[in-house]
């Protein structure tokens, strides 16, 4: 049998989360790995996918029906291809989370969500209870649907391969949903889940305007900006900035938490960062228990100081 990885991409190529999913797919040791690229006008993405080393085939489903990633036609398409595969693998992004369970239920197989480790082709480690426990689970099903925690797997190389590219036939339109519009956050900064450094603000920031202080520091570090749920709920930042159990999971080399108390749900999204810095005026704040470098103090003083010190030391984005 073989493994199908459903890949996400952008202008820069196959997305990091999908490259991590490819690594997980390789660890399954379950045979050839095919990639599925599905969208409208996605021929170039298909070519990018074919350069990923170690891929057997890139299957490209290029049709207007798939242009807005609606779950119903996408799931129908994947089900039409599923006969060839023992495993179907996606990144545990909002895209993956949306369509994977739909595919699994149509195939009457279980889904293993958010895996952090591949033990064998049917056994995986995954977080439960906001990562406060790790469950080792084994599937009894012949076919398996898996979503992958990107931070737990290295990114596969994106260049050097020469896979064959094959078109895939459209699988029919369930005509249950249609796309109305979107409001995507535009930013020049690195993407939150891909950034080497992340600086996040919490309720302690007091307003969206005050995030300008975080932006100054982020500019000097080449960092992405994140937020706690409280900061998002208060409207300081849009929902896609939320780091945590129910937001994005990040594991950068450096995570700076500013005015964030360190609730379990927030820690779930960042505690695997390599180095953690916390700036908080409450020395009892739980965030300090996991911080490598804690600074007890007022953020409104600390952030401008940090900005100046980085300037003084000539720190530049790497």
């Amino acid at each position: 049998m073989a493994v199908l990885v459903i890949a996400e991409y952008d202008e820069a190529g196959i997305k990091g989360g999908s490259l991590s999913a490819i690594t997980a797919a390789q660890e399954l040791g379950a045979g050839d790995i095919d990639l599925l690229i599905v969208n409208q006008d996605c021929a170039a993405a298909g070519e990018a996918a074919a350069r990923v080393p170690g891929i057997a085939r890139v299957r490209v489903a290029d049709d207007a029906l798939y242009g807005t990633a609606l779950a119903e036609p996408l799931a129908a398409l994947v089900v039409s291809l599923a006969g060839d595969y023992s495993h179907i693998v996606l990144a545990h992004t909002t895209f993956g989370r949306n369509i994977a369970p739909r595919i699994a239920a149509l195939l009457d197989i279980v889904q293993v969500s958010d895996i952090m480790e591949v033990k064998s082709a049917d056994t995986f480690v995954r977080p439960i209870y906001a990562g406060n426990a790790l469950a080792t689970v084994q599937s009894k099903d012949e076919k398996l649907l898996i979503t992958v925690r990107a931070t737990a797997f290295a990114k596969a190389d994106a260049d050097g391969g020469t896979a064959i590219i094959e078109p895939v036939a459209v699988a029919g339109d369930p005509a249950l949903s249609s796309f109305v519009g979107q409001d995507l956050t535009k930013s020049e900064r690195p993407e939150l889940t891909a950034a080497r450094i992340v600086i996040s603000g919490g309720r302690g920031m007091q307003s969206g305007e005050n995030f300008a202080m975080i932006e100054n520091v982020a500019d000097k570090l080449g960092a992405a900006i994140g937020a706690s749920r409280a900061a998002v709920d208060a409207g300081f930042k849009p929902n896609d900035f939320q780091v945590g159990q129910t937001g994005k999971v990040v594991a950068p080399e450096l995570y700076i938490a500013v005015g964030i108390s360190g609730a379990i749900q927030h820690l779930a999204g960042m505690k695997d960062s390599k180095v953690i810095v916390a700036i908080n005026k409450d020395e009892e704040a739980p965030i300090f228990q996991i911080a490598d470098y804690g600074l007890v103090g007022d953020l409104f003083k600390a952030l401008p100081e940090l900005d100046q010190e980085l300037e003084k030391q000539g720190v530049k984005p790497r």
Binding site: F95, F179, V180, G181, D183, T185
Partner: peptide, 8 residues
């Protein structure tokens, strides 16, 4: 969604 929000 990861990039912001969308309406269906």
């Amino acid at each position: 969604v990861d990039g912001g929000s969308e309406t269906l």
